[in-house]
Each structure stands twice: as C-alpha cells, then as structure tokens.
Simulated assay, not measured.
Amino acid sequence: MTSPQSTLPVFGGRYFDGQTAGERDVEVSLDKPGGWLIIRRDQSSGASIPQENWDLDDMRVVRDHGHEEGEVFRLTGKDEARLFVPNQVDADALRDACQYLRKADVPAGTLSKVFFWTGGAVAAMLLILFVLLPNLADTMATLIPAKREEAIGETVVAQIEQTMKFANSGQFCSTSEAEAAIAKMSDRLTDELDLPYPLKIRIMKTEMINAFAAPGGHIVFFSGLIDKADTPEEVAGVLAHEIAHVVARDPLRIALRAAGSAGILSMVLGDFAGGTLVLIMAEQVMQASYTREAEAQADEFALRLLKDAGLPAEAFAAFFDKLREEYGDTDGAMEYLSSHPNLASRAAAARAAETQPDAFEPVLSETEWAALQSVCKSSGR
C-alpha cells in the first residue's frame, strides 16, 4: 500500500487506547486510494495522541457497541484500542472503504490448538472404549449376582427373538422329545461341572448356521445349525463350546461392554433409548464377537468337556470343516483381523486333541437325534 496522504477530508471521532481511562477527541482522515485510516489528535482539544495509521483491510467493526448511532471500529492485532465515529454518514463512508469489517479473526495458533484438543478428546474416548470399559466390564461380571445375570440374559434373548421375527423367523421351537434330547446331551457334557445357574437351551427357527450363549446360562441354537450337522456329536461339540463361554461368563462381559460403549456414544451422539441399548447388547451377544483369546480358550475347554464325556473331537472338527465349506475361511493377515481363529486351525487343533479315538457311546440315540432335527418342523410353535 502507498503512504498516507497528508491532505484528505477530515471527520471527527473519539479514540480509546485501551490502556488508560477516558477518551480523546481525534481527527480521522480516510485515505481510501492508499488503503489507510489516519488518526490524529484533535488540535482544538489539545489532547495528546500519537498519529496512528490503520490499514483498512485490518479494520473490524465492533458489534453491539451500545451506541444508537455511529459505529465503533478496532484494528486487528490491537484489540484493546477503539475508534468511535459518531456521525453515521462518516461511519457509512468508512464501512464502504473497509471490505473485511465483519471478517472473523482467528488468533495465531488456534488451528493447532483445535487439532491438539480434538486429538486428545479422540484419544481419551478410544482409551475409555477399548481399555477402561473392557477392564471395568470384566470386573463387573464377577460382581453381578447369578439371578441378576439370568434376568439380563432373558431380556437379551427376548430382544433377539423380536428382532429375528422381522425376517419371518426367530420363533422358538419346542417338543417334549427334543427338549429331552437336548437335556440328555447337556447332562452328559456338564456332569462334572459346577455351574452357577442351570443351562437354558433353546432352538430358534432360522436357516442361519449359528449358536450363541447369552448371559445367565442361556444358550440358543439356530435350527440351520442342527440341519447342517450330520451327527449329534457335531452339535455336542458346538454346545460344549458355548458352555465354555457360559462358564467364563463371556456373554455377560460382552453385554456389559456393549452397554458401556453405548453409554459413551450416547453422550457424544445423543441420548439412547433403553430399547436401543438392549438391541445393541443383543446384537453383540448374537454375533458373539469375543476376542481371539476367548475363542481359543472356549475351544480348549470344549475339548476337555468332550474328553470327560467320552465323545470324539473328530465330530467337532468335522463341523468346522462344514463351516469352512459354507462361509470360507480367514487366512493370512485377515486371520488377525477376525475375532475367531481361522476354521482350518480350529479343526486341526480338535483333531490333534483325540478326545475319544476309539468306539464311543453316541450322545443321542437315532430316535432322539431325529426328534432334535425335526423340532422346528414338527413343533406347533
């Protein structure tokens, strides 16, 4: 910009330096071509003020200045000083000359501070979600009474049933013959176990090949899994795996983690209704997204149950093979991103265990196995 001109139209104003009390009458010259506002002391008042040259591009208007007429201006970088132009015509002329009057000034370093505090907030949330909440959930799982855990599981299973009904499936199937068969299988596997609550095993009608354990000893088999199995020993292997999760209280841990995560997210994204929270818990339990370590431990526990029950691990391995044929497997890097170890390694581990290599007593008779397989075809529910 050019230097301020010395002969320009002059108008009056009042100047506040922000350092001392009081105000000073000043003469103001607008050098629009040069891009300057020149502020001099008012000779008639004898007030002493050094001449100041304000860059028009750096001037800002002060909103809500408390004057009915006129305008108050400030200079960026010199926020404590104020210039009041009482004559509205002069103020309007100054407004027309300053093109950035209402520009929002961002102090130096603000952007870096925003990134710093945002990063800190994200890091804190990740710490809560992935470190503190899991540890807190693990601790709480050991403190919740068995009766309370059973009630939580009942609520979660009811929510899953309601959700599955939207896909024209999800109703529970039951016949006295099937219930007797599944009870016989369960008793054989848990004969030596001291469970904190009785197992509550149900079969849900859906083509999905899955089973899951909910808090409080609730275990749900999908009928698609039973249809896919060739022998009752394959189902027994899956049941042993879910019993392992029940004993370790893994379903309660995952439900508590889901509830805790939902609580944190509700503070960020808005309030969650109670029904939504139960839905999140139910989804987590049904997906059974346990850690790889928890899944490996459940497999090991299941193999011990099969050995104690005199049942072959080969049937368990065979079921892993079927799942692999149906859904494929996770290998290489993807194996480490999956919550479960890959199916091939699980099948190999089961075969290596050799829980019952010789002849064994079938877990169910042919009649009992037929009753179990037909439960969702012959039941009235």
Rank of each mutant, 00 (worst) to 15 (best):
T367Y: 03
D79T: 11
V246P: 03
F221G: 00
Q297K: 14
G119E: 04
R95D: 02
S365M: 09
S112H: 14
Q5P: 00
A108K: 12
L193R: 03
A183Q: 11
R40T: 09
A273T: 08
T142C: 07
P251A: 08
A123Y: 05
I254D: 00
Q171F: 10
E52D: 10
L127R: 10
K200P: 00
A288H: 05
F272Y: 13
A282F: 05
A121P: 02
D58I: 07
H67I: 07
G275F: 06
V235N: 03
H65E: 04
G119P: 05
G120M: 12
D96M: 15
E361L: 12
P107G: 13
M267H: 09
S379H: 06
D57P: 00
I39M: 02
H245A: 04
L311H: 03
P362F: 08
I160Q: 03
I264A: 15
R82M: 06
A315S: 09
E150G: 04
T139M: 12
T139Y: 13
L189R: 01
A244Q: 04
D58Y: 10
K147S: 08
A91S: 10
L269F: 15
L75E: 02
V72C: 04
S289C: 07
D90W: 03
T330D: 04
A348E: 13
A21D: 08
I254V: 15
L94T: 03
R292K: 02
T276Q: 15
D58R: 12
T139S: 14
K78H: 14
P145N: 10
V247T: 09
A151E: 12
I209P: 01
Y197W: 08
H67P: 01
F130C: 13
I201Q: 00
G18V: 10
E154M: 14
R24N: 05
L265Y: 09
R40K: 15
T110V: 15
D25E: 11
Y290I: 01
A123D: 02
Q287W: 05
N342E: 02
V268D: 00
S112E: 07
G35S: 06
V247R: 10
S266H: 02
K228P: 02
Q43E: 07
E326I: 03
P232I: 09
V62Y: 01
E207G: 15
P357N: 08
G119A: 14
T175F: 02
T206W: 00
A214R: 00
I128E: 03
I219H: 05
V235T: 09
S176L: 11
E52K: 07
D299G: 09
E295D: 05
E326G: 05
G380M: 09
V62G: 04
M185S: 01
K103L: 13
A124K: 11
P145Y: 10
R102N: 12
A262H: 03
G170C: 06
E361Q: 12
G18W: 09
I226L: 09
S169F: 04
D321S: 12
V246H: 03
K113I: 02
F212L: 06
D194M: 08
A282S: 12
E177R: 14
A313T: 13
R257I: 14
M164G: 00
R14A: 08
S374G: 11
Q297W: 01
R292S: 00
V285W: 01
E300T: 14
K228Y: 11
I201C: 05
Y197E: 06
S174Y: 13
E27S: 15
G380Y: 05
R346L: 02
